[in-house]
């Protein structure tokens, strides 16, 4: 123990200073640790967030596939419950006569045929009259070529030119007066026939749906196992058109509902494209 109070005080101050330093360093250490820990924590948090996002996506996918499965299951369930799964026949249509199909084809032809307006018919008639007059003149010119003397060069030239006025021309087709009326009749007959045929086909499809019949393979490939909920009417409309398409164009493939795509443009091609896109929509989850 020091007797000198000043010395004792100094010793105390020195000890206190040492304590202070030790505290300082401990504080610093603690701060660094805390910073480290915070960084680690935030990294973990980020990781977890990312994982959560991925899981979310996956859950959405799974939900969709569950939805798909659900629809399949419903269809299957109904068919199994129906016991003896009778098959729906969409291939034979004895009640739709060949005559009806012919009417439909004629209507389609009438729609695709270019119709003469009365003005066009008049113009064509005028052109024909002009051609006939020219032909008459040309024949007369050629007639005079048969008895011209050889040295009348200017006459030869004139008649030769007149003859050639016709050789590079074509006589237009005579417009048919009745074309317009006939086409109108064919169009309305075709529309009627399509309407009747559609009704018959739709009735049979509805019957198959109502009796839980097993659809043919091509039908299910194209239209899916059952109507999507809430859109039964659209689905039936498309299904009717698919069957009608097969019937009209003699597609008999057991698996491919529409057969190969038609090469040339026209009614068939339009219908084909429409049906392909509509069917793809019904098969989507």
């Amino acid at each position: 123990m020091n007797i000198d109070p000043v010395k004792a005080l100094e010793g105390k101050v020195e000890r206190l200073g040492k304590d202070l330093k030790a505290l300082d360093s401990r504080l610093e250490n603690a701060q660094t640790d805390a910073a480290h820990e915070q960084l680690g924590l935030s990294n973990q948090l980020k990781d977890t967030t990312r994982k959560l996002g991925r899981t979310n996506d996956r859950v959405t996918e799974l939900a969709e596939s569950v939805h798909r499965l659900e629809r399949l299951l419903v269809a299957l369930n109904r068919k199994v419950r129906a016991g003896e799964t009778r098959k729906a026949d969409f291939g034979n249509w004895p009640e739709i006569e060949k005559k009806e199909l012919a009417k439909i084809f004629q209507g389609q032809e009438a729609y695709s045929r270019k119709t003469f307006t009365p003005q066009e018919a008049k113009d064509t008639r005028k052109a024909i009259a002009e051609y006939d007059r020219r032909a008459h003149e040309a024949i007369e010119a050629a007639e005079s070529l048969t008895h011209l003397p050889a040295n009348a060069e200017s006459l030869w030239r004139k008649h030769y030119k007149q003859w050639h006025a016709i050789t590079d021309k074509h006589r237009p087709e005579v417009p048919d007066d009745d074309t317009h009326a006939k086409d109108t009749a064919a169009k309305s007959a075709g529309n009627e026939a399509i309407k009747r045929t559609r009704q018959q086909i739709r009735a049979r499809i509805e019957d198959a749906v109502a009796n839980d019949l097993l659809f043919p393979a091509w039908f299910e490939n194209a239209m899916g196992p059952a109507a999507p909920p809430g859109r039964a009417d659209d689905w039936l409309y498309t299904a009717t058109d698919v069957v009608l398409y097969r019937l009209l164009h003699d597609v008999t493939s057991p698996a491919d509902a529409l057969g190969p795509a038609p090469a040339e443009d026209g009614h068939r091609k339009t219908l084909y494209d429409r049906l392909v896109s509509e069917c793809a929509e019904y098969r989507r989850p």
């Binding site: 051609y131 006939d132 032909a135 024949i139 050629a142 007639e143 006589r171």
Partner: peptide, 13 residues
């Protein structure tokens, strides 16, 4: 040519 023309005339445009 006369013969051919006669045939042509007989046929008509």
């Amino acid at each position: 040519l006369r013969t051919a023309l006669r045939a042509l005339q007989a046929a008509g445009p």
